[in-house]
Design a protein around this nucleic acid. Sequence first.
DNA 1: AGATAATTCAAACAATTGTTTTAAACAACT
DNA 2: AGTTGTTTAAAACAATTGTTTGAATTATCT
Lengths: 222, 222
Amino acid sequence: MEDKKTSSKTRAAIMEAAGKVFAEVGYSKATIRDICREAGANIAAINYHFGDKKSLYLAVLKHYQEIAFKAYPPDLGIKETQKPEEKLRAYIRSFLTRIMDDVHPAWFGRLLAREFTEPTWAFDILVEETIRPSFQLLTEIVAEIIGKNSKERIVRLCSMSIVGQCLYFRHSHPVITRLYPGESFGFKHIKELTEHISFFSLHGLIAEGKNKHSEENKCKKR
Amino acid sequence: MEDKKTSSKTRAAIMEAAGKVFAEVGYSKATIRDICREAGANIAAINYHFGDKKSLYLAVLKHYQEIAFKAYPPDLGIKETQKPEEKLRAYIRSFLTRIMDDVHPAWFGRLLAREFTEPTWAFDILVEETIRPSFQLLTEIVAEIIGKNSKERIVRLCSMSIVGQCLYFRHSHPVITRLYPGESFGFKHIKELTEHISFFSLHGLIAEGKNKHSEENKCKKR
DNA sequence: AGATAATTCAAACAATTGTTTTAAACAACT
DNA sequence: AGTTGTTTAAAACAATTGTTTGAATTATCT
């Protein structure tokens, strides 16, 4: 049996448990025995419903990818506002929310963050279906802020600076708890983080725009 | 046998090979059989010379930590210059160099970058002996730029923004090669990356400093 | 050279992994 | 009920892992 044949009870339970375990310990360290114990299912069930471990991981990835992007689309609240700095803020908040969220069954955040730094064979799919469109949107916003005549390389550097900040706040938890016990940057601080990254990056971008060749006038300035 | 008894030939070969393999695939995925094949040693040699896999990893970590920090100390060229923006640039360059370097046998960069996002049991050691002093130095530089009366929380946020950028350029390789084949950000581009991150962050910091008290002449905001 | 310690080696061990098999339990329909 | 197809269950399989064993080899010292 390939995959989405039935919507059996155990199949759903396995998807849920697999998402949790995969997000917690990663693909290779996750054992199907753990997953099945968590799901209250037999070990053979995973082979029956999904084929093998790889296909299970793929199914989980695609499933929660759909959920996460339906809940937090990259252009969340971007269309209606004109000002590029508002677009940037909206993008950052959406991105942060998507990768920070791990309360309700949207393990996609952790899975995605994990694939970013420790890519598996499934990474190519994620790049094409998730990362590329999202990154593309960001580069457009960045280019709009810097100025239309900006070099592509610089736009990419700046975009990566922004993504890098978001991602780092995502998996800085182990570091932070050890460096400053009591501090934390989690789902609860998305608003604060959005403000900080937006503000910090916006002024970096503006400076970058002025650096290239003189920008005429961007409202702000000095 | 505990550890640094002898300086046998095979012991050194194992250290070298282990560093390479650990850096390549991570602790848990690295097999002692791979390491020993790479080192041209017998499988039992690792038990004989180091005790077990964990002790080997620890020995490798401590060894290359020493090497990397001797080669690229965090305060490289900071002392003599007064201007805080020069300090920031020096710090970023040193940090980048340390984590980017993976040509000569200093696998520490990759190992460190890996521990940052996928901490093992050895992470506590790294935090105390490596990360804390380095991060402490960064927060001091950041605080100097923002202004003395800045909130600690903001200083930490900004410091993490800087570290996050550096780290992301470190393991963005899998993403970049897929998004833009031909582009790359590696050891060869440390100068360019240093300039970009320094410039980008400096203006973020300055703005953050001005944001504290005076707010009126901000044009943006709301 | 000979004795003693240090090192290397091939083989086996025990535990864990993903996967498969075979039969039993269940459901649905005539 | 009886037949058929679907789902679950327990056990075994094959491969891989870290670790250990005990003998063979090499180095070291008197």
